[in-house]
């Protein structure tokens, strides 16, 4: 019985680690694709001598950092709550 409980707990720990890894990989993929498309768009605007290029850059980057920081906070909180258990 104890062996089953221990197996269940370790499976759950592995699942929580896996979910967090998938979350960070998803964030990296979305941010990478965002930077790629934003770079293309800024280049297009610059080639047309538009003054919107700089504003585009700043607004997009602010949102991107918000996404990165909030994902990091969620990951750290999940690990803290499950593995450290206050």
């Amino acid at each position: 019985m104890e062996a089953f409980a221990s197996l269940g707990a370790s499976t759950l720990s592995a699942a929580i680690i896996a979910v967090n890894i998938i979350s960070v990989v998803t964030m990296a993929a979305v941010v990478g694709e965002f930077l790629h498309i934003q770079h293309k768009r800024i280049n297009l605007l610059r080639s047309l001598n538009s003054n919107r290029a700089e504003a585009e850059h700043k607004h997009g980057r602010a949102l991107m950092w918000l996404y990165i920081i909030s994902t990091a906070v969620l990951t750290v909180t999940a690990v803290f709550l499950y593995f450290i258990r206050p």
Binding site: S23, T26, M27, V30, V31, F34, I37, Q38, R41, L44, L45, L48, S50, R52, E56, H59, G60, L63, M64, L66, Y67, S70, T71, L74
Partner: peptide, 19 residues
């Protein structure tokens, strides 16, 4: 969380350019 930021980041760019 990921669905929301995916949607927001997808929309947060200049869409229409008139030359």
């Amino acid at each position: 969380h990921h669905w929301y930021f995916h949607r927001i980041l997808s929309e947060a760019m200049v869409d229409v350019i008139i030359t």
